[in-house]
Amino acid sequence: MRLREIVAVLEGHPPSVLPEGTEAVCEAGLTAILGSPPGRLSGRRALLEHAARRQAVLERLMACGTVLPALSGSGLTPAEAAAALAANGPRLRQELRRLAGRVQFQVLVQWDAGLAPTRTEPEETAEDLRLRFADRIAEALAGVAEQHVNLPLRDDLLANQALLLPQSRTDDLDRSLEQIDALWTEGLRIRQIGPSPPVSFASLTFRRVSSAAIRRARHRFGLEGPVDPIRLRALRRDLLLRAAEAERAEILAAADVLDLLTRCAASGGDLHLVRIWSEGQAVPADLEDAA
């Protein structure tokens, strides 16, 4: 069966009209929106064009409710996508509830360094002014955002932030940007991008779980045969209480694999585990190691 790229997951039924070039797969009260795989993208222009097409699809889907976006390159067949929705339903619904009613904005504040001498205080350098304005801008944006991440800065930027906030607070963001503009109207240029789905705060990817990963997880918990969910939770709690900090991530990852087994014991196909990525984190480690 043909491979498709996961674009997003929604809760409930698919929209009556899908964005062009996409299809929907529904399972367990969830809908995966699938698009054509990008193939080999060579060069910056091709990458940017693909990203722009995906972003346009995500923004169209916002009319249907909360959108949990996917990292580019998450490819599954429609049958695998349906199985992955069923297997990872609790985790996906938890993330959709967390993001309900929330949107992402990106705010960039550019400054004209050549005009800095006209705004500096006595004994203040242009660098002092840059830091002072950057602090004021960060403070203003922090007042409206539930979460924020700092994105890469060019030399001419004082701020480049992705903000997660309730859709009901977009007017507060507008007022915050007015306050920033008032700092130095002639020397600052503000660009606002959004609203969009929270791609910088929660982007999913599905990774195949290899037989080796399952064996390691069973060994970590000392489990053979069918995995009982109640016993698994008790073992997880006990191991975490006794574990050193460096071991906790491995224990949690193994528990995720075994938890997946409790819901897919009779599926007979490959298992795919959802991972949620956010800006500043490494892309989740691949579970498709050697069998």
Rank of each mutant, 00 (worst) to 15 (best):
P195E: 03
R40C: 02
E247H: 00
S210I: 11
G89Y: 01
V67R: 05
M62N: 09
G39V: 06
T22K: 00
L165M: 14
A285M: 10
G65V: 08
S16E: 14
R189C: 07
L85R: 01
R231L: 13
V199A: 06
A213N: 03
W277M: 05
R53T: 12
L76P: 02
R175S: 11
L18T: 06
R136E: 08
N88V: 00
D172E: 15
G75A: 14
R207S: 10
I33L: 12
L18A: 09
T118C: 10
S210C: 12
R60V: 07
L177S: 08
L240G: 09
T66V: 09
L177T: 07
R175M: 11
C26F: 02
L164K: 06
F206L: 14
E245Y: 11
Q104C: 03
E23L: 10
R98K: 11
I33A: 00
L115I: 02
L48I: 13
I193R: 13
G268H: 10
P69D: 01
R216D: 14
E250S: 11
R2W: 08
G21M: 03
E127V: 10
L108Y: 01
Q110M: 03
S168T: 15
E23A: 12
R208Q: 12
T262L: 05
P78Y: 09
E123M: 07
P78R: 02
D156G: 08
R216G: 09
V7I: 15
E23R: 12
L18K: 10
E178R: 15
R132W: 09
F206R: 02
D174H: 14
N88M: 06
